[in-house]
Amino acid sequence: MKKFMQEFKTFALRGNVMDMAVGVIIGSAFSGIVTSLTDNFINPILNLVTGGATYTLQDVASFASSFLTAVVNFLVMAFVLFCLLKGMNKLASLAHKKEEAPAAATTKKCPYCKTEIAIDATRCPHCTSQLLDVEKP
C-alpha cells in the first residue's frame, strides 16, 4: 500500500498533471468572465438595438458591477493558484534536492612548492621535486 501511495504521489505531482489541473481551474474561472460579458454587455446591447428592452442608469451600473466582480474573482483565483503552485514547486525542489557525491580529485598540491599538479604526477613540473608518495608502475 505504501508503494501504491508513493506512485500516486509521483503521478499527481508530475508537471503535466499539475499543468492540466491549473488549466481546468483557470478555464472555469475564465468562463465566468465570458458568461458575465455575455449576460451584462452583449445581451443588453442586442436588446437595446432590437428594441426588446430599455435600461436605466441603475441597470447599466449593475451590469458593469457584475462584470467587474467576475474579473476580480478571476484575478483572485489566478493569484491563489500562482501562490499555491509556487509553494508546491519550492517544496518539491527541497524534497528532491539530493546531496551529490564530491567529484574525484584530479589535482593535488606539491608538498614543496605548493602548486597544483596532476594527481598521478611523480615529479613536480614547477620545482622538479620528486614526489615520493606516488607509487611507480
Rank of each mutant, 00 (worst) to 15 (best):
Leu68Thr: 06
Val60Leu: 10
Thr107Met: 08
Cys127Asn: 08
Pro125His: 01
Gln6Leu: 11
Lys108Thr: 08
Val60Ser: 06
Ile42Glu: 00
His126Gln: 12
Lys86Gln: 14
Thr50Met: 02
Ala104Pro: 07
His126Pro: 00
Cys124Leu: 04
Phe82Asn: 10
Gln58Ile: 10
Thr106Pro: 00
Glu7Gln: 13
Cys83Leu: 15
Met77Trp: 01
Thr115Leu: 09
Leu91Ile: 12
Ala95Leu: 15
Ala92Ser: 08
Leu94Gly: 05
Ala118Asn: 06
Phe63Glu: 04
Val34Trp: 01
Glu135Ala: 15
Leu48Arg: 06
Val17Gln: 04
Asn89Arg: 15
Ser31Cys: 05
Thr106Met: 13
Thr54Arg: 06
Cys124His: 07
Asp19Ala: 15
Glu116Pro: 02
Pro137Leu: 03
Leu85Gly: 12
Phe74Gln: 00
Leu57Asp: 09
Asn16Asp: 14
Asp39Ile: 09
Leu46Trp: 09
Asp120His: 07
Phe79Arg: 00
Val71Pro: 00
Thr128Leu: 11
Asn89Thr: 11
Pro44Ile: 01
Ala29Tyr: 01
Val71Lys: 02
Phe4Met: 14
Asn73Pro: 02
Gly52Arg: 11
His126Phe: 10
Asn40Ile: 00
Met1Arg: 13
Leu57His: 12
Cys124Glu: 09
Ser129Ala: 15
Ala103Pro: 02
Leu94Asp: 02
Val76Phe: 10
Ala61Gly: 08
Leu94Ile: 14
Leu132Trp: 05
Asn40Trp: 04
Ser31Gly: 02
Ala70Arg: 02
Ser93Leu: 14
Asn47Met: 05
Ala12Thr: 07
Lys108Ile: 07
Val49Lys: 01
Tyr112Asp: 05
Ser36Gln: 01
Val60Arg: 11
Ala118Gly: 06
Phe41Thr: 03
Phe11Gln: 07
His96Pro: 00
Leu46Cys: 03
Met77Val: 15
Thr54Phe: 09
Leu131Ile: 13
Lys108Met: 11
Asn47Arg: 07
Thr38Pro: 00
Glu116Leu: 12
Glu116Cys: 04
Ile119Glu: 02
Ser62Glu: 09
Ala78Asp: 09
Ile33Gly: 03
Asn73Gln: 07
Gly27Tyr: 02
Ala121Asn: 00
Gly87Lys: 08
Ala78Tyr: 11
Lys3Val: 14
Pro102Cys: 05
Ile119Asn: 01
Pro125Leu: 01
Val60Tyr: 14
Ala70Thr: 00
Arg14Gln: 14
Phe4His: 13
Ala29Asp: 01
Ala92Arg: 05
Asn16Thr: 14
Ser62His: 10
Cys83Pro: 01
Ala21Lys: 11
Ser28Ala: 12
Leu131Ser: 02
Ile119His: 03
Leu75Asp: 09
Leu57Cys: 05
Thr69Val: 04
Pro102Val: 09
Thr128Phe: 05
Ser36Met: 04
Thr107His: 13
Ala53Thr: 05
Val80Ile: 15
Ile25Thr: 12
Val72Phe: 08
Thr107Trp: 04
Leu132His: 11
Leu75Arg: 06
Asn40Asp: 05
Gly15Arg: 15
Ala61Ile: 02
Leu81Thr: 08
Asp120Gln: 08
Leu13Asp: 05
Leu131Glu: 02
Ile42Leu: 08
Leu84Glu: 00
Tyr55Pro: 04
Lys98Tyr: 08
Phe74Tyr: 06
Ala12Ser: 12
